[in-house]
Design a protein around this nucleic acid. Sequence first.
DNA 1: ATGGTTGTCCTACAA
Length: 255
Amino acid sequence: MKIATWNVNSLKVRLPHLEAWLARVSPDVVCLQETKCEDAKFPGAEIEAMGYRWVHNGQKTYNGVAILAKPECGNVGRGIPEFADEQSRVIAGDVGDTRIVCVYVPNGQSVGSDKYEYKLRWLEALRGWLAAELAAHPKLAVLGDFNIAPEARDVHDPLAWEGQVLVSDAERAALKRLIDLGFADAFRLFEQPEKSFTWWDYRMNAFKRKMGLRIDHVLLSDALAKGCTACAVDVEPRKLERPSDHAPVTCDLTP
DNA sequence: ATGGTTGTCCTACAA
């Protein structure tokens, strides 16, 4: 089974890129972030025409997350239980015997801002919920835009970024606490090229200059990590005209 | 140098 995550930064704008990518890669499950549309405006017919079922936690203008899957996606949940959040950032569902959680972690804006504090509170709530999910679902995968680069090697210029949002100690500690529940960062199970990133700012020709961060992740429970045979960033869609600022990450699991 | 680009939606705001 091939699972994937992609922050598309507007599903309406990126639908042609998504369709081309689905046709080329044929993942079984895709988690999308920043769909930026209400449920009523989700392009369901187009997705179904590509052979995918879908579930969506939509929102106008901002956020919005979806799971596309070839099989039926059951036991669907939206948001973090017992965490009141007006922003649509989480959707979860069962695909076969695997529990899929799609997350769009708050960006945090800048260290010390209200949005930063919200990000840290949000991550703590996510951790509490995932502890319970992990106990209930041994085969658990959490995929999405975490808006955190875990280590220096995940940052094009660690010195320039030191202490900034997306790389600050508190954010990294929060991500580590999450992973320490019993997950593996699937990307780091394998040898990877240097300067592997998943997001490049639209400004300053950052992509061409390889000025990126690795902030999109696939976290696998131990039971899934044992059967993980590959994980990679697919930079091809980032090279197209009018791209998302994020590239998809794919992950292969044995059945 | 606090720059620059994109998406949503109309004027800023978020990223």
